[in-house]
Design a protein around this nucleic acid. Sequence first.
RNA 1: GGGCGCAUAGCUCAGUUGGCUAGAGCGCUUCCCUUACAAGGAAGAUGUCGGGGGUUCGAGUCCCUCUGCGCCCACCA
Length: 880
Amino acid sequence: MSFLGARGPPVPSPRVSTIPDKPTLDGLEAKWRAKWSELGTYTFDRSKTRDEVYSIDTPPPTVSGTLHPGHVCSYTHTDAIARYQRMKGSEVFYPMGWDDNGLNVERRVQLLKAVICDPSLPYDPDFTPPQPDAKGKLPKDPVRVSRPNFVELCEEVVVEMEEEYHELWSRVGLSVDWEQTYTTIGPIATRISQKGFLRLLDQGVAYRSGAPTLWDVDMKTAVAQAELEDRELPGAYHKLEFTHAESGEPIWIDTTRPELLPSCVALVAHPDDERYQPLFGQTATTPLFGAQVPICAHELAQPDKGTGIAMICTFGDTTDVIWWRELDLPIRATVRHDGRLERDIEWQPIRAEASGDETVWSSVDADEANANYAELGGKTIFTAQKNIVELLMAKGKMDGEPRPITHPVKFWENGKKPLEIVTSNQWFIRYPSTDEILERSKGLQFHPEYMRVRFEDWAKGLQGDWNITRQRFFGVPFPIWYPIDENGDVDFLAPIPATEDMLPVDPTTVAAPGFDESQRNQPGGFAADPDVMDTWNTSSMSPQIASKWEEDPDLFDRVYPMDLRPQAHDIIRTWLFSTVVKGHLLFDHLPFEHVSISGFVVDPDRKKLSKSKDNASDGPFELLDEFGSDAVRYWACGGGPGRDTTMDKGQMKIGRRLAIKLLNASKFALGLGSSDGGTTAVTEPLDKAMLLALADLVDEATRVFDDYDYARALERTETFFWNFTDDYLELVKGRAYSDGPEAESAKAALRLALETLLKLFAPFLPYATEEVWSWWQDGSIHRSAWPSSAPLRDAAGGADAGAALSMTVAAEVLSLLRKSKSDAKVSMRTEIVSATVHDTAERLAAFELVQRDVLDAGKVSAVETAEAGELSVDVVLAEA
RNA sequence: GGGCGCAUAGCUCAGUUGGCUAGAGCGCUUCCCUUACAAGGAAGAUGUCGGGGGUUCGAGUCCCUCUGCGCCCACCA
């Protein structure tokens, strides 16, 4: 059965008897969830071809931490779009992924299972994690387990979490095809991720290199540029006395990192800085260590910071890396991967014939340098700073006390300690040029469009290539081994890649091609790459993973490239960017055409809702319990594309009211009984006017939905609906209860309007609309055709501007009649013995068309009209 | 420091290419059991459209500027 073509007029089925006496939202969720699942309402139909399919690159949520209302909000936006596209006739491919790859899960497992990964251990098939004691406490010291054991535990924990997420979203009514799920650590994702890596390696785009690397000394892993964040931290300027080698005059340097003084390789000032221009090209001697360092000029030096001349250390910050590279400086690395200072540094006297390390670690007074360095070697950065300040003070090389400041310090967004920059071997992906990326991204439609700027800004600000190596345990391993020479030294720059038929592969459990397991870690043998990939290196292939690239070519051809990438704005620089880059590098195309950006859920103070601040009553399940899914969805869909959504139970209350109103209004419209199979003509002006207005609504809702503005579609539909119930329904009630063609006109119009409104609401209120639909229609409303305005305009027949005006006048006169009763503090049922309507001739003519309906609704026995400049109504109320 | 966004009733928000007296709901006040709906209905009150300047016959809307808030980015001296 095809949903692509236009449908004929609705055929009311004779099932009116199933309308409940007291419609209620209670029980609808359980009922329809089961039904949808049983009937496969949202199951992807694989017979459809690419041009008939609308495919969605669903964000795989990180399955860790606590569920909060934000998890409901943005996924509901996408669901509204999915439901709209489905009704528009597309077969929607709407999968769900679980991001169980990465540090968050790793940490959670360490916490829940009291284990820690030690990749050097062999796999233990009989391992069981420590059990809680009588008090329910896990042992304080974690048990060390092998990587395969650790991964097994991760997968266990992840399955539990996935169940909770599935429960939440299924209840929220996401029209996901739950048969189409994937995980980012599963075999398919691992194979695709590794395969992508091998292809890039083959192209020379992925490469291994020793380079200065942003490093989290706490977690002991490399970190990519995209995962940085700045945090304001207290620090202090220390004013150090360097010596101008040529003159012996002091040169004062302000630094916040005095402990890096032994790593100092140069001084730098701005080329235009007249204070230091005479010194450029000359030499300075570092205090305490007597290193001879050049005095250089560079544009990035800021004359107004500190004394205007800075010391360059390898490496104190990312600017140091730029200076080091551009000024061609040597490396004096002192910070180790564990955040302590190197222990085995031996300063040498300066000798003309010196080479290698001796040149790097040379000093005008090697004995003093070594004595001073002895206070620092092996110490943490914190302690080293304390010690060196004491040394500097004792030797009179520091001017005054440290001057406290607050300054931004780079952190890994998941980290606890400031990042250091260390040199190590890492895997990189060479970025395309910025121009190439920008050109490629032009084909991407952003919703809202202004979010494109964030993507472009990031592309323009790229520094260096993408480091995809993480020194972690739980993740996609590199399909790589390294040869070990006869001396037992591993050559980390001569990788042995896996062949594609080996994938997915964990090199710590599988021998390298051409070797056998007995040669692992042996001289002349091989060693496994110990690291795992950056989680984004796998997530960046989510379109290919969900579409099962080279796993299920038939499916792939039907759904890829995808139509929509929905995601939040905070991961434009990571997920969106890396996905676009991967698509460009591996496939030479965009992996999706549209990207819809959602905001965050914020509290009324506009602060991002954080998990820690959540109190129990604001958890998503509690909200669903209290208000129901349709109500929570209503609230969520009030937040337009790209905008933050304010956490507001008031809106949920309104959403609930709307859903209930929909049930009751439907009960009324359908309870009038069926006219003769929908063939009755709509004849009355008021009915025609209503249908015309509805046709306009359909056109607008369709237009804004096509532009991904679900929020506006909902708002317009809702506004129409409340006017529909407050005015139109009240106006036609009397006529509809009567007999004759006028009554049949009302009934026909009501049914047509009801069918249309239900469909317009269906993407937002899937439960209530489906319930009402089942009272009188076959099949699921969510597989029915999105309304079009043409049949409504046809049904409205020759309705014109005058008819449209009649609707307005009717509503206004009715309002005044009600007001007269309200002012008199009498019941709305009170009869109006006579009424005189004053208005302009044109409006009175319009009133004439609908007069009967207005009189019925207002319980007016007799009416007169009189021309006047504006509308007013005089009434005589019946005695109480 | 740069970029983007936001600022309309006590609250949450509409207000499309400038165009009648700026709207809705919540909350508030008053009234009403009325045969779709009391988890309801009707009526009412509520605004220097963040401040200032400009363009225009006309500005919530366009331009400039300032302020506040949020997010993103940026070179830790």
